[in-house]
Design a protein around this nucleic acid. Structure first.
Lengths: 220, 220
DNA sequence: TTAATATTTTAGACAAACCTAAAAAAAGTT
DNA sequence: AACTTTTTTTAGGTTTGTCTAAAATATTAA
């Protein structure tokens, strides 16, 4: 089976919005895809007819096994291309997402397998997100939000949840990237902002909002 | 200006079918694009409205300066991707075309410039066709059809005009590739087939039809 | 130069993916 | 529980790119 770009965009959006919720709301999909709720309903009916989702009117939507398989394929293509763009073409990590959005829709199986081989079967993309292998399996990651890291405990940045150019720009300015080792020196109760220390550089302050979107793991 | 995949396919087809003819016929476009003449007429009106072609009803179509610029951009993307697939991902030259048909529609200017740089600014794709540079300029090639090569004169294969998998398969079987040195030993008047000799291998026969689609240059 | 044939265009439809406005259902509030 | 607000769906349109069938134009042949 082959899917249109729109169908793939919906499947991917359902996959991403699902998280650990029970199901995804029509309105949330509309917001994510910059479209209208009525359009989402139309497409959900189509995807249900193709047996890729479990959909009951007014009750939200979730992927079924087949849909999840498709979603993982799209995610795999997206993240492999991101890796290619960053690693081979020297795109900076805040530029890769947009181009990968287009490349991910190219469906040649052979292309993706050859690309994967060429890249050396990478396990993570430039944002720290795991890349599904050709069977849809991916490395488990323990993503601790920076907000929950105890004080004075060195940890390694291993992911960011939001990939908007604005946020990635902000991280770049603070010299925070995947692999950066940092620790939290102080938390301010008033606005929940926190003081961050990166080795050999002066401390600086980040907002709670930013901290929530940075994931770390303890140094091993 | 940004163009749809369909629009780009039409522009590319007009570019390729034009050759040294005065204009391109509606029927020929329909055949090339696997669509119907009526659909072609519709699209020609649209492209004319966008000022990319010169089109007069019943009189055929040609690209104007702007259209030719767009076409060269598409050809550039196509051939760069072909080069990438063959050179980096180890696709064989008869597999690259189909995938490049999809990749060529990804429009990021930055992607193509970075790719070009990464590949080392190649001048020819795996089929021997010249790759336009970022200004649309390409290396002049003297493409002598094999049918016009004099007897017993060594020459280098520098291109093929038809890129159907069938033909490329045939060439592969005959060990003919870009760069192969060969000479014509004999021409048979009856069916215009010809006897070909590649150094250190036995002579073999090829049809006139195949010979017309193989281009060579004299050894330098 | 008229008739036959081939090519091209027009007219009217259709599917995919979107839209707005209104109706229906669910959730939240008093 | 009844009312209000929010969410979601339905109904009916629009645009893009396609189609078939019929009409118009151009080309070829007698």
């Amino acid at each position: 089976m082959n899917f249109s770009i729109s169908e793939e965009d919906y499947i991917k959006a359902i996959y991403h919005l699902k998280g650990d919720k029970l199901s995804v709301a029509t309105n949330d999909l509309a917001a994510e895809l910059h479209t209208r709720p009525a359009s989402v309903t139309d497409m959900l009916k189509k995807l249900a007819a193709k047996k890729l989702i479990h959909y009951q009117p007014y009750k939200g939507v979730m992927l079924n096994t087949e849909g999840r398989k498709i979603a993982l394929g799209i995610v795999r293509r997206h993240r492999l291309w991101e890796y290619f763009l960053a690693e081979k073409l020297n795109f900076s990590w805040n530029e890769v997402h947009e181009v990968a959005e287009q490349l991910e829709h190219i469906s040649s199986k052979k292309l993706i397998e050859k690309l994967d081989e060429y890249l050396g079967y990478p396990k993570f993309d430039p944002h720290g997100d795991p890349i599904p292998d050709h069977l849809g399996r991916m490395q488990a990651t323990d993503h601790l939000p920076l907000t929950e890291l105890p004080l004075d405990t060195p940890a390694v940045v291993n992911g960011v949840s939001d990939q908007s150019p604005e946020m990635l720009e902000l991280l770049r300015r603070r010299n925070i990237a995947i692999g950066t080792v940092l620790e939290v020196k102080k938390k301010f109760g008033f606005d929940h902002s926190m003081e961050i220390k990166i080795k050999d550089t002066p401390v600086f302050i980040i907002t709670e909002q930013l901290a929530q979107n940075i994931f770390v793991q303890y140094e091993s």
